[in-house]
Each structure stands twice: as structure tokens, then as C-alpha cells.
Design a protein around this nucleic acid. Structure first.
Lengths: 171, 171
DNA sequence: CTCTATTTGATATAGTGAATAACAATTATC
DNA sequence: GATAATTGTTATTCACTATATCAAATAGAG
């Protein structure tokens, strides 16, 4: 809660930008003004940074955030079909086809014709997929989430995730 | 801080997902598993929701989040050139040209040849641009940010923005 | 059971955002 | 004064997203 308080306390003492600075600021970096208080703006900038860091950490395994989330979901819910997995992640079915083509061609997962419904493909991780996912999880935990936890403090990181989840769920 | 605490306290009592539920969950929604704890995932989902709400609220003015941020920045920093405004927002100069074409063709801003450096275009809001931006600000404050503040609590909303800004700044 | 409607995975296609290379005009630098 | 760097611009490419449509398979109504 320490970082939280220090962050919150920073709200009021935030340097007031010189009111009538119409043309005063020369060669200085432009002033963000009210943009700094817009949740959507900081949300997008932060998301880009976090994804950037994720990709950097995941370079040896060549997994994008989306691909990692697909592997995680298949591992946690084996036997689901494409429609179920795609819709859970908010991915359109046509776009999910290409994603699966990529993962399957790399030998990380397989599509199996369902015995009960021969329209659908049951998704499963291969051994290689499980091994890759395990290594990916360790990388993410050790180098990515650990860095965020160090930056924010673990309790703040957790609070942040909870607030973001609430926005995604209830807004 | 109430909501913050309630959110934080939810961390431990979070419903443990049934361990050996390999194939048990049928016709139930797939389980997110470790995805729910990934900051990048909740960050992206929340960002999509927030932008969606922003666009909905801004429908009468037909401004995207990016366009709104450009108008805000020009208002706050009149006389800046395209390179300065674009780089402040993390927009590539070539892509910023199209954005400005759109805003200028709608009569919201103008490019003026700088007297001191005739390579650069000085950016200024038009009267219409100022009026539109003022209406946009009111819409955002009254219908968009207010909704987020209601959802999270104002103090939590502020803390959230501060944490996101810290990530964007220091990660 | 048959006919129709729905679902699933897939293809094609289009729109948007973002990135790089290259260019003319202008300015800065040596 | 010759060369390098900067500004706005164009063209182009790539990734991601969204919609319409299709064949195969299933579900449902009569």
C-alpha cells in the first residue's frame, strides 16, 4: 500500500502547468495537459509498453501475447473447440483460424475432429506445446511480471489487475 | 481507499478453480486460469472496453480517442509543429499526416507555414476546433470519466491512472 | 423421417493502425 | 559554399480486426 499512497499523494502536488503559457514553452517538450488525467490515454500507453516488454522477454520462444493466451487457454480447457476458445479471448472465428494454423504448423497444438460433433475441432496441446508453454510461463513470471511487480510493488500490481478486470467485466 | 481494499482483499479468497477439472467442465464457459492474473491481458481487455465506451460517448462529435488527444495537445501547445505533436503522442510522422488531413478537412485545425522555419507547419485550432473540443471535453467528463469514476470510485480511478502512467514512463 | 434452420470451421475481402523507405524543400553545419 | 540533417509528404508493407459467404454437419419442426 506504500506505493499506492505515494502515487495517490502525488495527485495534488502535481506541478501546476503555467496557466497562460500560450507560446511561452519553446524547445521544451509539449505539455500533455488534461491528457495525463484521461484513463483511456494512460491505459493505451501502458498497454503498449507492457506488450513491448512481453515480446522482448518472449523473444527466445517467439510467442506473441495473443498466442501465449491461446496456449494457456487450451492447456486449461483441453477438448474445447475453436469457437469456444476464440470467443473466450474475444477473437473472431475467421481470425482464429489463421492463429491456429500458425500454432499447429509449429507443432504446438493440434485440431482433432470431435467424435460427438464432426463439425467441430477439439483443441489440444502437443507435448512440444506443453513444454513450450511451461518455458513461456517461467519466462513471463521471472522476467515480465516480476519486473512489473518490482516497479509497482506486488500488492499494487494485484490491485491494478483487479481494477482492470473490473473495467473489462462491468463497464 | 475502500474499493481498493475490497479489491485487494479479494485476492486471497479468490475462488480456487477445481484442480483436476481436465474434462469436467462441459457446456460451462472456458476457464481463464492464469490468464486472469496476467497484467497484459487485463490491460488489453480493459483498454478495448474503455475505448469502446469513449467512442460511444463521442458519437455525436465523431472523434476517435486519437483525434481527441491531438486536438487536446494542439490546444494546450499552440504553435507546435507536426513532428513535435506527433512524437509526443507516439504517432509516426507519416501516419500523422493523414490524421491532420482529416482534422483539417473538417475545419477543426489548420497548418500554417512557420515564419521562422518554412519547412515546418505550425498547428492551431480553429474556432470550430476549439468549440468542438470544448463540447468533447464536457462529454468525456460527464459521460465517460464519470462512469469510470462511478465504477471504481474516484480515488481509485486516480490511483489507477497514476499506476498506468508509471508503467508507461518507467517500464 | 424429411425439410429447414443453425452451427462450425474456413475462405475471401476490406478497413484500420502502425512501421519503414524514399523524396523535395528547407535549414543547419562545417 | 558544399554537405548533412530536418520537415512534411507519399508510397508501401505488415499486423490486426471485422464482415460476408460457403460447405459440411448437426439440430429442430412438422
Amino acid at each position: 500500500m506504500v506505493v499506492t499512497k505515494s502515487l495517490a499523494s502525488r495527485v495534488k502536488p502535481a506541478r501546476m502547468q503555467p496557466k497562460a503559457a500560450a507560446e511561452a514553452s519553446e524547445d521544451l517538450p509539449p505539455n500533455l495537459g488534461e491528457l495525463a488525467d484521461l484513463l483511456g490515454y494512460s491505459l493505451k500507453r501502458a498497454q503498449l509498453r507492457v506488450f513491448e516488454d512481453f515480446l522482448r522477454v518472449m523473444t527466445p520462444l517467439q510467442l506473441t501475447p495473443a498466442q501465449f493466451s491461446v496456449l494457456l487457454l487450451i492447456e486449461k480447457n483441453p477438448g474445447r473447440n475453436q469457437t469456444e476458445v476464440a470467443s473466450t479471448l474475444g477473437i473472431q472465428r475467421p481470425n482464429f483460424v489463421t492463429m491456429l494454423d500458425s500454432l499447429e504448423s509449429r507443432g504446438l497444438c493440434v485440431r482433432l475432429r470431435s467424435a460427438s460433433d464432426r463439425r467441430s475441432h477439439v483443441l489440444m496441446l502437443t507435448d512440444k506445446g506443453r513444454a513450450t508453454l511451461m518455458r513461456a510461463k517461467k519466462l513471463v513470471a521471472a522476467k515480465h511480471e516480476a519486473r512489473l511487480s518490482e516497479l509497482l510493488g506486488e500488492s499494487n500490481r494485484v490491485v491494478l489487475v483487479q481494477m482492470l478486470a473490473k473495467i473489462a467485466r462491468e463497464l
